[in-house]
Design a protein around this nucleic acid. Sequence first.
DNA 1: TTACTTATGTGCGAGTCGCGACTAAGTCAA
DNA 2: TTGACTTAGTCGCGACTCGCACATAAGTAA
Lengths: 241, 241
Amino acid sequence: MDDAAFLADYDPNAFERPSVAVDLVLMTVVDGAPAALLMRRPAPPQQGCWACPGGFVGMAESLDEAAHRLLREKARMQGAYVEQLYTFGAPDRDPRTRIISVAYFALLPADRFAAAMAAGDDLTLARIAVPWAGEAGGPVEALAPDGTPLPLAFDHGDMLGLAVLRLRGKLDYSAVAFALLPERFTLRALQSVHEAILGAPLNKPAFRRRMLDRGWLEPTGEREVGTSFRPPELYRFRATA
Amino acid sequence: MDDAAFLADYDPNAFERPSVAVDLVLMTVVDGAPAALLMRRPAPPQQGCWACPGGFVGMAESLDEAAHRLLREKARMQGAYVEQLYTFGAPDRDPRTRIISVAYFALLPADRFAAAMAAGDDLTLARIAVPWAGEAGGPVEALAPDGTPLPLAFDHGDMLGLAVLRLRGKLDYSAVAFALLPERFTLRALQSVHEAILGAPLNKPAFRRRMLDRGWLEPTGEREVGTSFRPPELYRFRATA
DNA sequence: TTACTTATGTGCGAGTCGCGACTAAGTCAA
DNA sequence: TTGACTTAGTCGCGACTCGCACATAAGTAA
């Protein structure tokens, strides 16, 4: 029997199937701390809890395509750095039915969130409180602007924690940090992003040297305007040749 | 409407669903090169091609549980180090129907494969040829014992490549290498495992120092027997205190 | 003009790494 | 018994990186 003959006989409904969703951990850095876009769930289950934007995977789209579609449809943004994070599949993680969720994380500079935030009250850019140091890992809390914890739906606390962990791990061997900054930025801003993700202060001269030696930074010759005191130089990210 | 009332009304069949499978990249190190357990596909599609052992996820089991079950049922092994790798979801990756595959990798010392290999001709421990250096990534080839390439089913060449890449990345900050060695081993054997995974030779004194300084190694006081020349000391892995 | 504040650069000591050379400890054969 | 042989394991040095204290530069504002 060849492939064609086999496929004619194949019954795709022989087994019961789980639902497959994509959830998006849409992160940025605000005021020296990591933050994520959360949506208030408008309907049960877990009505009123906050969740990462997500949705079911279409039958004709890849997982990456689904992630980009959700970024557009649910968060009304585009052009983010998007990367697959982890797949969550505990049988009881959603009370409706078996839902397996492929989590992605997406990175954007903070100023790109302004438009989406204006849309309404059921979206928030929540500060993430990381209770562990280094590469320990574990769930995190999301905080409202006034500092009170937001109740998170399902296993989204683990999801956010894993996103922070992955980001920390990739910070010093990949260029992810630049996805969290505007096109032109100062070295101080770059350092602040690193410190926010790592949750620890860094030594300024050492950080400078490392970054400049990496060859990822291109001086623009321009300087930041509107500052008091000596204006810092603006740099641009340039992929390694 | 509360959660209970909502769930009574919920129709889990409102959307068409993909199938979800778990595939297992079961790796070890043989003769100084990475190797993976592959099964010859006994039926279409891609009959006769070689594939990582896999199967559909049961409705009541988690993804991790499915991976461990497949390790037992398909490979007849247990006790491996198992970790989720990546989820493959291209719409056309399997011609039967939409199948989303959560890939795991599993690590075991080479001697644990002897029993499984005796089982029959449709299982092989294929040497993996990595055509790229460092962290470049990309698909790899699987080689038969005589050096000829084995045809790989679906996207399993990418899967194997990603497993090697992940292993390389974790090698020097985690203890994964010890999952590829028996309980007691020599420093030379540990170095050989690192070299096989990295695909590059390492400096002996530097490697020794690094490993001993990490605090993961416990000398047993015993020495390897049956060797010609000076017998090396046997060490044991001890998780960091 | 001068105080103030942040940007940017410099120099040094500690720690790590690669590397070549050296010593140690077994087997094996004459 | 002894010496050649081979692998195990150690030592020391130069190159490089990193953290850190400090010096210098360049703006604003009174």
